[in-house]
């Protein structure tokens, strides 16, 4: 089964492999589809909905939708971008994101995506939830104010580290990431070298004692917008 699957994204012809998702095939062809909950090497989650594209006019998450011959995909259009902007704005107002003093600033995928999509300030009212911080672990902390519930830590710990340190509890607006202990991260077997410790796209799960180590000007997204590494052919 090495036959290629030909389809179109925004007028550009793409050749995908059987079993690939739209996001993977696009990435291989140098087309960036914005995403947050997707992470290479993890089972796609399809939860943030940022990677939503229109497939023959129907919305589908690109990270979970397999490629099919002849599909016409709308990605970087005004209509799709406007919808994505709304989703990213929702994530900003849902939590407490203070970029100006966050250690993740400049390396944060949420922040970088907001810049890329041209969000200056969200049009939605801030919800200012009360959320907790867990500093118990010697090497890693959790700041739930910044959590966007993408589940990357959950999947990384479960599927890569084989530890299942994290999982979701509660539902709806009460949903949060919990740890495999009564309360504290320190009471789990998380190790700072685990995949889960570096899977967070925002500043919710951070390694201690490395904050602000990279000076402004040298951070991941200081010069080029998120996604440009894909568009420039580097994967």
């Amino acid at each position: 089964m090495s036959a290629t699957i030909e389809f179109v994204i925004d007028g550009k012809e793409i050749q995908g492999q059987p079993g690939q998702t739209i996001l993977e095939a696009a990435q291989q062809a140098g087309v960036y589809i914005p995403r947050l909950c997707y992470m290479k090497g993890l089972v796609p989650h399809g939860s943030c909905r940022v990677c939503t594209v229109l497939v023959n006019g129907r919305p589908q998450s690109a990270c979970t939708q397999p490629v099919a011959p002849g599909m016409v995909v709308e990605n970087n259009t005004e209509k799709v971008t406007a919808l994505r902007r709304n989703i990213v704005e929702m994530l900003f107002v849902e939590g407490n994101h203070f970029c100006m003093f966050c250690e993740k600033s400049g390396n944060c995928e949420l922040q970088a995506l907001a810049y890329r999509l041209g969000i200056a300030a969200p049009k939605y009212p801030y919800l200012f939830p009360t959320r907790d911080i867990d500093m118990s672990h010697p090497d890693v902390f959790i700041d739930r104010n910044r959590c966007i519930l993408c589940g990357r830590c959950v999947r990384a710990s479960r599927d890569v580290d084989g530890k299942h340190v994290f999982d979701f509890v509660g539902r709806g607006p009460h949903k949060r990431v919990a740890v495999n202990a009564e309360v504290r991260l320190a009471d789990t077997n998380l190790d700072v070298r685990d995949k889960a410790a570096e899977a967070c796209p925002v500043g919710a799960i951070m390694k201690k004692r490395v904050g602000y180590a990279v000076p402004i000007g040298q951070r991941l997204y200081d010069h080029k917008p998120i996604g440009s590494e894909i568009e420039n052919g580097k994967k």
């Binding site: 939860s47 709304n86 994530l91 519930l149 009460h174």
Partner: peptide
């Protein structure tokens, strides 16, 4: 809907809270 959303995806989890407000 705010109460019964599973909270898995962003638009339903957050959007409905904002819509209600």
């Amino acid at each position: 809907f705010v109460e019964e959303s599973c909270g898995y995806c962003t638009p339903c989890r957050v959007g409905n809270v904002l819509l209600k407000e």
